[in-house]
Structure formats: C-alpha cells, structure tokens
C-alpha cells in the first residue's frame, strides 16, 4: 500500500521532532528496514531544523513550511518546501573538516554532512519564492540484500 501525508509546520523548534516521529511511525508501518528509518529520519530532522532555525527573519507572519512524506513500494520520498530566504543546503552549507582536533572542530555543516551520507538522492530548487528540497531513498536494494 502506498501512503502520502502532507504536514504544515509552525515556525517552532519542536516541529522537526514532530515530523521525524511521524515519519518513523509511517515507515515502521510500511516495513521499512530500521536502518533506513533511522537515517531518513535524521535527514528530515537536520534539514527541518535548519529551515526552522535560519530560513526566516523576525517577521514571520507569512512563513510557510510544508513537508510531504510518501511511502511507495520501492522507495521513500520526502519534499520539504518553505518560503524563507533562498538557501541550498547541498551547496551553501560549509563542509566540515573531519580531520581537526576537538579543540579546532566546528560543528557547522555536520547535519548536512550526515544528511548527504545517509540519503541516496537529494535535490534542491528555488522556484517562485520557495525553497524545495527533495529526498529519495530506494528500498529495493536493501530488500534484495535481505532476500
């Protein structure tokens, strides 16, 4: 069975968790392997935390954040849309230097770094005042491994 849910988020620091947990529930029901559930959930959490924290200025009356989650037979698809300032996390976030000592490390960019490592396909576009980020994770390869 294929399932599609659309969520409208408030500009609130607790919202990424609400989405992550809703995704987890959907994915478990859909029998998605636990490893993929964790990684995709983390990606959603990291990307939404960025949006909620940085996409909007003080005047947030027009702020809109929308997340679409789709469970298909062979893949999981998510779309994150917001009408905040243009920001492409795939290009605009700094790459962390993983070779530095604890004293010299900065934490910036780590969420995006994990997201890129954990999700198969990420893409960004800016259209008509909206940031649109899509996340796609195939499920077939994994089920073949388990077969």
């Amino acid at each position: 069975m294929e399932v599609r849910n659309e969520l409208h988020l408030a500009l609130d620091g607790d919202e990424p968790r609400r989405v992550a947990e809703m995704f987890e529930e959907m994915a478990v029901e859909h029998d998605v392997p636990v490893d993929i559930v964790f990684k995709f959930q983390l990606a959603l959490d990291e990307l939404l935390t960025n949006v909620v924290s940085y996409a909007f200025d003080q005047d947030t009356s027009d702020a809109a954040i929308k997340v679409t989650l789709e469970m298909k037979n062979d893949r999981i698809v998510a779309m994150i849309e917001d009408n905040g300032r243009p920001f492409n996390p795939l290009l605009d976030a700094p790459d962390p230097d993983l070779g530095l000592s604890a004293e010299d490390r900065t934490i910036g960019g780590l969420g995006i770094h994990l997201t890129k490592a954990f999700v198969d396909t990420l893409s960004y576009e800016r259209t008509e005042g909206w940031n649109r980020l899509s996340l796609v994770q195939p499920l077939t390869a994994h089920s073949e491994e388990n077969a």
Binding site: A20, F38, Q41, L42, D45, E46, T49, A102, E103, R105, I107, L110, G111, L114
Partner: peptide
C-alpha cells in the same frame, strides 16, 4: 534511541571540557 548533530555538538563541548 536517536541522536542528531545537535547531540554531537553537546558531546564536542564535553570532550573539550574534559580534555
């Protein structure tokens, strides 16, 4: 059960302080 980069940030601070 779950930890995002926000948790890593906390660990990094604790690593520095204990070092």
């Amino acid at each position: 059960r779950y930890m995002s980069s926000a948790g890593l940030r906390v660990l990094l601070i604790a690593i520095r302080k204990t070092n």
